[in-house]
């Protein structure tokens, strides 16, 4: 996709691509930092490699999917209570 010169730099597809790359690099660096920094583990599992990374990712996916499923039952048009 070509950039539109009128657009703000933050919404140009080329900048978004750069932002994704920088973001993924930071994520990778954070996970790898577990190799160097020794975390004091309180419960065992929280000392495992990259615990906070995978736990954050998985629980958030779980919450999004759970909300989505619950939405099938609970969502109504936003005029539901209007008379």
């Amino acid at each position: 996709m070509k950039d539109d010169p009128q657009q703000h730099w933050l919404v140009k597809p080329s900048s978004i691509k750069i932002l994704w790359r920088v973001g993924l690099f930071i994520l990778a660096a954070l996970v790898l930092s577990d190799l160097i920094i020794h975390t004091h583990s309180a419960f065992g599992i929280d000392g495992s490699f990259g615990f906070y990374s995978w736990y954050g990712l998985l629980t958030c996916f779980a919450m999004i999917v759970f909300a989505k499923l619950l939405g099938f039952f609970l969502k109504r048009k936003d005029t539901y209570y209007d008379d």
């Binding site: 973001g23 930071i26 994520l27 954070l30 996970v31 577990d34 990259g50 906070y52 990374s53 995978w54 736990y55 954050g56 990712l57 958030c60 996916f61 999004i64 999917v65 989505k68 939405g71 969502k75 109504r76 048009k77 936003d78 539901y80 209570y81």
Partner: peptide
């Protein structure tokens, strides 16, 4: 780690988060 990976999950699951006119 916890927060940025939560952020990653947000952008990966963005199609699931499409806003609807609902309550």
């Amino acid at each position: 780690q916890l927060l940025l990976f939560a952020g990653l999950s947000f952008f990966l699951a963005l199609p699931l988060m499409k806003r609807t006119l609902t309550i």
